[in-house]
Nucleic acid binder design. Structure first.
Lengths: 347, 347
DNA sequence: CTGAAAGCGCTTACAG
DNA sequence: CTGAAAGCGCTTACAG
C-alpha cells in the first residue's frame, strides 16, 4: 500500500501560476459567477486537473459567511425512531445540497451535554436539528446559543423558542389504549420509554384513556429503548396476576415483552394482548405479528430539515410543522381477553 | 415564538473592543497557548460572556490548516451492520474531539456517487471513512481524491490504496457452513446480501466449505439487506424440496426467511435450520432464537477512526487493522435434519 | 473579460 | 505579559 507523505496540497494560487492567469480569474471559473473567456477557462480547467486542485472549503466558508452543513444532536443513532428520523434529515439535506453532521449526547449529565454541544458548535454550521426524544435532547436544546438557527423534533410545545416539528404522541397513547379497552380488557398496563423530564405524551394519553373509562391505572413499568429492557419489563408483568393487555412505549420493547410472556407460558394474544409504537420493520414479521401505533419518522426528519432551511433563508412562513397523526395498525398480537378469564384470573 | 432576525454574530474584534484589549490577546485567552495576566483574562472572559461570543471555526480551520471533522460515506445508515459501524466511528471520534459528518450514497450510479462525494468534499475534512459493504461504497472509494486521508472498512484486500480495517467475511461463511454440515445436513442453501462487485467473502466461504465436503452447491438466492427481502427469499426456498439448512447473508434476512418458512408450514429448526450473520439485537429474542455468526461492528468502526487519526498524525504505524474473527453463536434455529426426512423429502 | 486590492475572522511569529 | 503586523486561501467589489 502507498503511504508516502502527501505533498503540500495545491491552492488556488498554484492553479493561477500554472495556468498563467491571476488568482481572481481562477476563482471566477470555479464559482461561475462572472463570464470568463473560453480560452482562459480551458487553461484554468487544465491546470486544475493537472494539480488535482480542490478548493479549501474553510476559506470559502470564511469569506462567504454561509455554511452548508447542518448538525444533528441526538441521544443515540441506532434505535429505530432515532435512526429513521436521522435518515429523513439526511435525505432531505442531501437533496438541498447540505451535509449532515451528527453528535450523540451520551447522557443528560452536564459534562456529556456540554461535550456534545461544544463539539457541534466547533464547526461552521448552517443550523442544528435536535431530536428532543429524551432528557439528553432536552438539555442539549437548552444549551444551544440563541444565535443559531435551530429546529427540533418534539412532541411538546414547552421549552425554548425554536422551530418545531410536532408529532402527536399524546393521541397515539390515547388511541392505542382506547383500542385495547374496546376489545374488552379491564385495564391496560404500560411499559414506558425514557422521556424528556416530564411524562411522555404517550404515557399521558394512556392514563387519560383509562381515567376517562373509569378504569384503574396500573403502575408504570420503566424501560429504556431496547428490546432487552422490554424483556425485563415482560418478566415483571408475567409475575402479576391481572395483566391481559400491555401497551409498550416502542416496538422493540414490545418484542421483549412478548418474548418474556411467552417464556412464562403465556400466549400472545390469547392470554395477553400487546401493542407497540412506531411500526418497526420487524413488527410485521414477529410471531405473532405486532399491533402497533405507526409513526412516520422519516417524514418527521425531512420536515425538520425543511423548517431549518426556511429559517436559514429568513422565510416568514409558519414557524412550526406538524406531522400526520400516528395511526393504529392492527395485527395478530391483540385480541379480546379470554372469556371468563380461563387460565388467568382477572383481578 | 421568537423569530426576530438575529443580530450580527459577534467576532473576536468585538470582544477585544469590549474588553479593551488587542485582538491577539483575546485569541491567547481563547487558545490558552501563551500566558495572559489574570486581570486581562478576566476582562476578556467577561466580554465573551457578555457578547455570547463563539469562535468562527471556518476561520480557525483556515489559519490552523487542521480540520476536526471526519466524513463517513455509506450505502445507508439504518441497517444493523451499517448503523453499528457508524456508532463505533462516532463514539471514537467524539472521544478524539472530532465531529462526524455522514452522507449516504443512494445507488452505485455515477450521478449518485458523484453527488455524495462532492457533498462530502465540499467541507473542511480531516479525512474520510468509507463503508465498503456494497457497490456504492466501492465506487465512492474510487472517486475520492488521493490527497485526502482515507480509511475503509472492508472485507477485501483489493482496490485502491487506503488504510483498511479488514473483517474476515470469508471465514464467517466458511465456519457457518461447516457447522451446518457437521449437524448432518446434506447441503446448505445461501441467501446473499448485496456485494461490492465481486462475490462477497461470506458467499465464497460458503461455497468453499461445500466443495471441500464434496457437496453440491445450490443456486444462490439474492436479497437486499432487509427482512422483507429475506421473506421473499424464504418463499422461494419453501417451494424447493431439498432445503434443510439455510445460511442467510445477515440476521434480518434470516428473520424474513424464518417467517416465510413458518407460514408455509415448515418448522425451524425441525424441518429447516437457519443461520444468520451479525448477531442483531433481535436474534436472541426471535422465535426460535437465531443461531448466527457474530461480528463486532462497533469495534470495526472504532478501529477505522483510529486508523484515520494515525494517518492524519503522520504515524508510520501499521497501515491496516484487522478485527477479531467472527464467531458462531449457537441458539435454537439450528438442529440436525429430521431422521429419514420425516415430513420432508431430502433430495 | 481580466487584474490589483481589500477583506472574511482568526492565529502565530516578532518585537518590546 | 501584550500589541502591531503578517498571513491562512479564498471571493467580491473596483477599476480598466
Amino acid at each position: 500500500m502507498d503511504h508516502r507523505p502527501r505533498e503540500r496540497v495545491p491552492v488556488l494560487a498554484d492553479v493561477a501560476r500554472v495556468a498563467g492567469v491571476s488568482v481572481p480569474t481562477v476563482s471566477r471559473v470555479l464559482t461561475g459567477a462572472t463570464p470568463v473567456s473560453d480560452k482562459t477557462r480551458k487553461r484554468v480547467d487544465d491546470a486544475i486537473l493537472e494539480l488535482g486542485y480542490r478548493p479549501n472549503e474553510a476559506a470559502r466558508a470564511l469569506v462567504r459567511g454561509r455554511q452548508s452543513m447542518v448538525g444533528i444532536i441526538a441521544g443515540n443513532t441506532t434505535r429505530f425512531g432515532y435512526a429513521a428520523t436521522i435518515q429523513g434529515i439526511e435525505e432531505a439535506a442531501r437533496a438541498a445540497g447540505l451535509l449532515v453532521a451528527i453528535t450523540v449526547v451520551n447522557s443528560a449529565t452536564e459534562a456529556d451535554v456540554k461535550a456534545a454541544v461544544d463539539l457541534m458548535l466547533g464547526q461552521p454550521l448552517a443550523g442544528v436539528i435536535v431530536l428532543d426524544f429524551d432528557l439528553q435532547g432536552e438539555r442539549a436544546l437548552s444549551a444551544l446559543p440563541e444565535t443559531l438557527p435551530i429546529a427540533v423534533v418534539t412532541s411538546t410545545n414547552d421549552g425554548r423558542a425554536a422551530r418545531r416539528v410536532l408529532f402527536d404522541d399524546h393521541k397515539g397513547g390515547y388511541e392505542a389504549t382506547k383500542y385495547l379497552l374496546s376489545l374488552g380488557h379491564e385495564t391496560v398496563h404500560y411499559v414506558a420509554v425514557p422521556s424528556s423530564g416530564r411524562p411522555s405524551g404517550r404515557l399521558v394519553g394512556w392514563r387519560e384513556a383509562l381515567l376517562e373509562a373509569g378504569r384503574k391505572v396500573p403502575e408504570v413499568v420503566l424501560a429504556d429503548w431496547s428490546a432487552q429492557s422490554g424483556f425485563e419489563a415482560g418478566l415483571i408483568l408475567a409475575g402479576l396476576s391481572d395483566v391481559t393487555a400491555v401497551l409498550s412505549g416502542n416496538d422493540e420493547i414490545a418484542f421483549g415483552v412478548m418474548k418474556a410472556l411467552q417464556l412464562n407460558g403465556l400466549s400472545v394474544p390469547d392470554d395477553v394482548s400487546v401493542v407497540g409504537f412506531d411500526d418497526h420493520p420487524h413488527a410485521v414479521l414477529w410471531s405473532p405479528s405486532l399491533t402497533t401505533m405507526a409513526q412516520d419518522f422519516v417524514q418527521l426528519g425531512a420536515s425538520a430539515l425543511h423548517l431549518l432551511v426556511a429559517e436559514r433563508e429568513g422565510a416568514d412562513g409558519p414557524a412550526d410543522a406538524s406531522s400526520p397523526s400516528p395511526h393504529l395498525i392492527v395485527r395478530d398480537s391483540t385480541a379480546p381477553p379470554r372469556a371468563g378469564g380461563a387460565g388467568r384470573t382477572i383481578h
